[in-house]
Simulated assay, not measured.
Amino acid sequence: MAASVSSLLSLSWASTFPKQSVAPNSMAVDSSTASRPSTVNAYACTTDAIFNEEGYLKRRPILLGVGSLATTLIPASFGYAEEVPKNYEAFVDLSDGYSYYYPSDWREFDFRGHDSAFKDRYLQLQNVRVSFLPTDKSDIHELGPMDEVISNLVRHKFAAPSQRGTIFDMQERTVNGKNYYTFEYELTSPIFARTAFATISIGNGRYYTLIVGANERRWRRVRNQLKVVADSFKMLDI
């Protein structure tokens, strides 16, 4: 009887929250910004938080969907379903229109100025976070050529005044008619270096940014794992 009551409560809570994490092996659904002062300010806060312990705020609780229950909470109208890779979980935000994978042993936390974030249990700078800003554009191509957009972001938005931004690689992909730019970059200062992947896209009247990275010294060890996260980001129709 206790197990039945617990199951019913879980189902009731699940129907209340639009954001959820989907357990592994279940089914998951799936730039000229210089003229936007609000964009500059938001990215400046992001960069400051990476190197500032105060960027890690109090964690908020997360709903964990399990098995068939998690599957039924994701409407089929969001494009397509796929199996979550082994050792990853899927975060799905039905309200704000996006999803992505993160390593299953990471935990959720609040990151200032971001809509969702997960981090390694022991290494705080090894994390993924997603933010978005309102925009009147409808596609990432409207921002300009990919190389110009990414160069502007890394060197003038992501990098703080004391940092140097270096871009290693940039790629474009299209999924279900939606376009994404994903790029690998490094931010270095006199005392610290951090390497990351970022994925940017535009849809639902929002300019989305996912950043997943680690301390430069650990980058070679975790690069492939974090590339899965960067490539998994998808916009959902809302």
Results as ranks from 00 to 15, higher is better:
176 N>T: 09
176 N>A: 12
176 N>D: 14
176 N>Q: 15
176 N>K: 14
177 G>S: 06
177 G>T: 02
177 G>Y: 04
177 G>Q: 00
177 G>K: 02
178 K>L: 15
178 K>N: 10
179 N>E: 15
180 Y>V: 05
180 Y>F: 14
180 Y>S: 09
181 Y>N: 01
181 Y>I: 00
181 Y>S: 03
181 Y>A: 01
182 T>V: 14
182 T>A: 03
183 F>C: 01
183 F>T: 02
183 F>P: 05
183 F>K: 01
183 F>I: 00
184 E>F: 00
184 E>N: 12
184 E>G: 02
184 E>L: 14
185 Y>S: 13
185 Y>E: 06
185 Y>T: 07
185 Y>A: 15
185 Y>M: 08
186 E>C: 09
186 E>M: 12
186 E>T: 15
186 E>I: 07
186 E>G: 04
187 L>C: 04
187 L>P: 08
187 L>R: 04
188 T>D: 12
188 T>K: 15
188 T>H: 07
188 T>M: 10
189 S>R: 08
189 S>M: 07
189 S>N: 09
189 S>I: 08
190 P>F: 09
190 P>Q: 05
190 P>G: 09
190 P>R: 01
191 I>E: 14
191 I>Y: 06
191 I>M: 05
192 F>D: 11
192 F>Q: 11
192 F>W: 09
192 F>K: 11
192 F>N: 12
192 F>E: 15
192 F>G: 05
193 A>K: 13
193 A>V: 08
193 A>W: 04
194 R>A: 13
194 R>T: 10
194 R>L: 12
194 R>S: 12
194 R>D: 07
195 T>W: 05
195 T>H: 08
195 T>V: 10
195 T>I: 09
195 T>R: 15
196 A>H: 08
196 A>G: 07
196 A>W: 01
196 A>V: 03
196 A>C: 10
196 A>P: 06
197 F>R: 01
197 F>D: 00
197 F>I: 02
197 F>M: 00
197 F>Y: 13
198 A>Q: 09
198 A>H: 02
198 A>R: 04
198 A>Y: 07
198 A>W: 02
199 T>W: 02
199 T>N: 04
200 I>N: 07
200 I>M: 14
201 S>E: 00
201 S>I: 02
202 I>Q: 09
202 I>V: 15
202 I>G: 05
202 I>M: 14
202 I>C: 08
202 I>R: 01
203 G>N: 13
203 G>M: 11
203 G>R: 13
203 G>T: 10
203 G>P: 14
204 N>T: 02
205 G>T: 13
205 G>M: 13
205 G>P: 11
205 G>Y: 12
205 G>K: 13
